[in-house]
């Protein structure tokens, strides 16, 4: 298979006034790959995602998307959203929120079809008309996934999206994501603390440590990646 990069990170560094999060970070994400970013709290996982989403300006280095950033649609599924049990919108209306950028207040036929597809492929058809506030944790995460997928992204970022789910729901969500990754060549970045889950679904890992990072095929992810995460001072490549 010919490899085609979706994004390249070169010599990336992010410094906050009181500490350095990471420096000289380099990696390339190929189209259709499934990268798991792991690391202990404070290692810089969220900072890296914010930098990729252009929500934070790096202190040094570059992040390049191919062919260009504008051509890349990013779907993002966070761990939490501030949606309480009285959140009024239906699952369907929530999913359609991501169809913005057009000034018509109503959805076109094409957009309605995109919403239907996102709902169907994430197995939400049965609860599409139910208020999202009344949905279970797993259903909510699938609705967040459907919203991220409704614009048919090239890159899907799951930011600790499985952290608040029970085991069965975690695997159910990741099975779905893996299916999109395989069948639609969707590039996935999965930020997690859950090493077994990362090993089962990802192709590669990026292990962020407070003092460096490791990168490699998922089979080489160290068993003690999160236990002794701050043991060394070197940047290494597995």
């Amino acid at each position: 298979m010919t490899q085609s990069p979706l994004l390249t990170v070169e010599h990336l560094a992010v410094n906050f006034p009181d500490h350095q999060v990471f420096q000289d970070l380099n990696f390339t994400l190929q189209r259709g790959s499934f990268l798991s970013i792991v690391g202990e709290n404070g290692a810089g996982k969220t900072t890296l995602i914010r930098a990729l989403l252009h929500q934070l300006k790096p202190s040094a280095g570059t992040i390049s998307f191919f062919p260009e950033r504008k051509a890349i649609r990013i779907g993002y599924v966070p761990q939490f959203r501030n949606l309480d049990e009285e959140y009024p919108l239906t699952v369907r209306d929530f999913v359609s929120l991501n169809l913005s950028g057009i000034h018509l207040p109503w959805l076109s036929r094409k957009e309605r079809q995109a919403v239907d597809t996102a709902i169907r492929t994430t197995n939400l058809t049965a609860i599409a008309k139910r208020p999202l506030g009344m949905a279970s944790g797993g259903e909510k995460q699938r609705a967040y996934l459907a919203q991220a997928l409704v614009e048919q992204p090239n890159l899907l970022i799951l930011d600790e999206s499985t952290a608040s789910l029970d085991n069965m729901m975690k695997y159910e969500l990741l099975e779905l994501v893996k299916k999109f990754n395989r069948e639609q060549n969707l590039t996935v970045i999965f930020v997690t603390h859950d090493l077994p889950l990362a090993k089962q679904y990802a192709d590669e890992f990026l292990l962020l440590r407070r003092s460096g990072y490791e990168l490699g095929p998922i089979a080489k992810l160290p068993e003690d990646a999160l236990i002794s995460a701050d043991r060394g001072g070197e940047t290494s490549h597995a």
Binding site: L97, N98, S100, H103
Partner: peptide
């Protein structure tokens, strides 16, 4: 309308 709706009902997503 659409952008305001997104921001009002899902600020994180927007």
């Amino acid at each position: 309308y659409r952008d305001l709706k997104f921001d009002s009902f899902d600020h994180i997503g927007a």
